[in-house]
Every structure is written in C-alpha cells, then in structure tokens.
C-alpha cells in the first residue's frame, strides 16, 4: 500500500508540473506552481525528511509563490495602466 501511495503522489507531482508549464493562463500556472510546492512537501514527508518538508512548504511554496505573485501583479498593472 505504501507503493501505491508513493506512485499516486509521484504521478500527481508530475501532472501538476506538466500543467504548470502547459496552461495557457499565467495566473493559473502560478497557482499550480504553489500547489506543486505543497505536494513536494508531502513527498519530503514520505522520504522521511520532515525538516526539508518544513523548509519547502515555508520557503519553496510560500516565499517563492509570494515573490512570483507580486512580480505578476506588477507586470500586469504595467501592461494595462
């Protein structure tokens, strides 16, 4: 059953990564990237590394997501004044 769990988690990671690169709308791609980071922290939990899971959830998903969203908002406002 652990194998099924790992395979399902790995498949959803790959699906999220693919959709992140392939979605036509940029804002949705950013949301999917944050979701990818949160799924990565689940994967770190499965790999028995809770410290990396914490860092990934806080820095990888939270901080990077906030930076990307901020840049997206600024660029968007500049395009349409």
């Amino acid at each position: 059953m652990t194998l099924a769990f790992d395979l399902l988690l790995a498949l959803s990671l790959l699906w999220t990564a693919w959709r992140t690169l392939a979605t036509p709308r940029l804002d949705r791609a950013l949301v999917l990237f944050i979701v990818f980071g949160l799924l990565m922290s689940l994967a770190w939990a499965r790999l028995a590394a809770p410290d990396i899971g914490l860092a990934e959830a806080a820095i990888g998903a939270g901080l990077t997501g906030a930076l990307l969203l901020d840049a997206y908002g600024v660029l968007r406002r500049r395009v349409r004044p």
């Binding site: 990564a17 992140t20 690169l21 940029l26 791609a29 950013l30 990237f33 990818f36 990565m40 994967a43 770190w44 790999l47 590394a49 990396i52 990888g60 990077t64 990307l68 840049a71 997206y72 660029l75």
Partner: peptide, 24 residues
C-alpha cells in the same frame, strides 16, 4: 518556452527534480 516568467517556473521545477533525485 520563451516567456521569461514561465521560464523561471520551469527552472524551479528543474531544481525540484534534482533535489528529489539526490534525496531519493
């Protein structure tokens, strides 16, 4: 991908893949 913001996203995905290989 030509769009630079998306290219940064792809770069991050690449890094995550390398981390998974290392720890796995």
């Amino acid at each position: 991908i030509g769009h630079l913001l998306r290219r940064i996203l792809a770069f991050n995905l690449m890094g995550s893949g390398a981390f998974l290989v290392l720890v796995g």
